[in-house]
Design a protein around this nucleic acid. Sequence first.
DNA 1: TGTATATTTGACCCGTTGGTTAAATTTAAA
DNA 2: TTTAAATTTAACCAACGGGTCAAATATACA
Lengths: 211, 211
Amino acid sequence: MSKSDPADGNTQERIFEAASAVFEEKGYTGARMQEIADRAGINKALLHYYFRTKEQLFKAVFQVMLKKMFQKITSIFAEEIPFKEKIKRFLDDHIEFLIKNPKLPIFLLNELSQNPSVSEGLKEIVNYDELRELIYSKHAKELKGYGIKKSDMPQLMVTVVSFSIFPFAARDMIRLMMPEIEDNKKFNAYMRERKDFASDFIFSALKHRKK
Amino acid sequence: MSKSDPADGNTQERIFEAASAVFEEKGYTGARMQEIADRAGINKALLHYYFRTKEQLFKAVFQVMLKKMFQKITSIFAEEIPFKEKIKRFLDDHIEFLIKNPKLPIFLLNELSQNPSVSEGLKEIVNYDELRELIYSKHAKELKGYGIKKSDMPQLMVTVVSFSIFPFAARDMIRLMMPEIEDNKKFNAYMRERKDFASDFIFSALKHRKK
DNA sequence: TGTATATTTGACCCGTTGGTTAAATTTAAA
DNA sequence: TTTAAATTTAACCAACGGGTCAAATATACA
C-alpha cells in the first residue's frame, strides 16, 4: 500500500464519508453520484461497484445518521441519574453534538418527510415505547409532582428536544433575521447560552405548571 | 371566454398554484417543470412563456410562501393587546395556519438552508429589528418583571415559535416514533392540545424564571 | 511463479430534464 | 373585417445524471 491519495483509509470508508457529506449538504435529489465519486477521489463506476445504486448508498448513509442523532439521546435517558440531571445532560451533549453536525437536523427532517420509506429502521434505533416507559416509570414521583400525566409525555418530550434541534433546523432563518447571530461563532455561542436558558425555562415551567 | 379547463382562473394563477404545490411537496431539486405544467393543465412551453426559468418561478413562489408564513406572526405581535394575549393568539393562529399548511415549515427551512440566496426578500417581509423593538418597548414592564433582558429576546422568540413550527417540521419523525400520533387527525388534535400546553408552559416558565 | 479473484478505470448508454423555436391559434383593437 | 399582438402548442435540443461494460490492474494464494 503506497498511496498518497488524499484522505486515506479503505475505499468503502472514503465513499461513505463523501456520500454522507454530499447527501447532508444537497439532500437526496440534489446530490450527484459524480460529486460523491470526486470527493472520494475515485471513479464513478467504482462507486457503483461498492454500492449498486444511489438509493442503496443513500439508505446506508441515512441509517447511520439517524443512529448518530438518536443514540446519544436515548442512552442518556436510560442512565440512572435524577430527571433534572438527565435534561441538563441531554441539552449539553446534544447541543455540542449538533454544533459539530449542524446540518443534520434539516437533512434528516427533510428526507424523512420527502421519503418516509427510508425510515424503516427508525423503530429499531429508537424504540420510543420503551424509552417513554423508562422515563415515566423511573421518575414517576417527580413527574407526577409536576402534574405530568403519562398522556402529557408526547408534549413534554417534543418540547425538550425542540430546544436543541429547532434552532439548528431554523439556523438560516435565524441568521437572516437576527443580526446578533450572523456568523457561526455567534450562533454557536448563542446555542451554548441556550443550554442554561433551556434547562431553566423547562424546570421553571414544570415547577409552576397549571395542572 | 368559454373554457371548461379544470380549475379555472387565469393561466398565471393556475401555474402559480401548481408550482406552489409541487415545490412544497418535492423541494426545488425534486420538482419537475413537466409536473407543474401538467398540474396546471398546460403545455410546458407555456410554463416557460410565463416564467422564463425554473429558478425564476421558484423564487416567485418562495417569496409568497415566506410572506404567508410570517405575515400573520408579525401582525399579531404588532397589535395593542397584553403580552400574554399575544402569545396565546400567536399559538392559536399559527397552529391553525400550519394545520392547513403542514408541509410549509420543512419546505421553507430546507430551501433556506440549501440555497440561502432565495431569501433576499426576508428582511423586507419580517423586519426583525422593528419587531423586537416593538415587543420589547411595548411590554418592557412585564418582560422586566420576568427577568427578560433585551439580550434574552432571541432566546425567548426562538423558543416561542419553536412550539408551533417544530412539531410540523418533525412531523414524520414524531409520527414514526409515537404510536399515539399515527394519522393526520390525531396529529392535528395533538397540535390543538399543544396550544394550551405551550402557553401554560411558557408562562409558568416566565413567572418562575431564574434571573 | 502462475492463476484466480478482487479492485479500478475510461468509455459508453439512454432516459430525463430544463429550455427553445417556429408555427398555430386566440384576443383585441382599428 | 383586418391586422397586430398576446397566448398556446408540438416538436425538438443539448446537457445532465444514474447506471453499465469490457478491459486493465492490483492482490492473494496455491
